[in-house]
Amino acid sequence: MPEHTFRVNGEQVTVEVAPDVRLLWVLRDLLGITGPKYGCGIDVCKACTSHLNGKAVSPCAIPVGELRPDDEVTTIEGLAATSGQELHPMQRAWLDHDVSQCGYCQPGQIMAAVALVRRVAEEGRAVTDADLDGLRNICRCGTYPRIRDAIRAGAEAMR
């Protein structure tokens, strides 16, 4: 069985599994990292959203064999550490706005939000309504309005 080495939440990991197994299952079923959730398995619901080298990706759509040893995967469990604080400013904003209901979508929502804010910051602008409309993450509990408020607050705090 081939070995795959990459970094997860700041640590080097090596897994032995067929190269076409998607990263989501490597994280959840083999490494026991269960923050990224399954909601569709076909890159639609975005419940699994995590970061690869700082950008938002859907691990359910990435064969583990495509990762290189220096690729850095960040899941919700490792997000706070990237800010050097106990909680990432976006997580704090989520708490301040009491966004979560069942919470199943929320790890993916937060990871998508952080990537969005970083992207618009690189473009030298603020988050717009159109940016928020463009987020594809499903929340079947319908927390969308609080998500919008929290992202705006989190974006301020990330500056």
């Binding site: 026991g32 919700i76 989520w94 708490l95 966004v99 199943y104």
Partner: peptide, 21 residues
């Protein structure tokens, strides 16, 4: 009052069925 499980939810620590070991 904020939800008592909010911190677990935003840190990925909240455990659903599929997350149980």
């Amino acid at each position: 009052h904020n939800r008592i499980d909010a911190l677990d939810a935003v840190t990925g620590r909240k455990k659903f069925t599929l997350d149980l070991d």
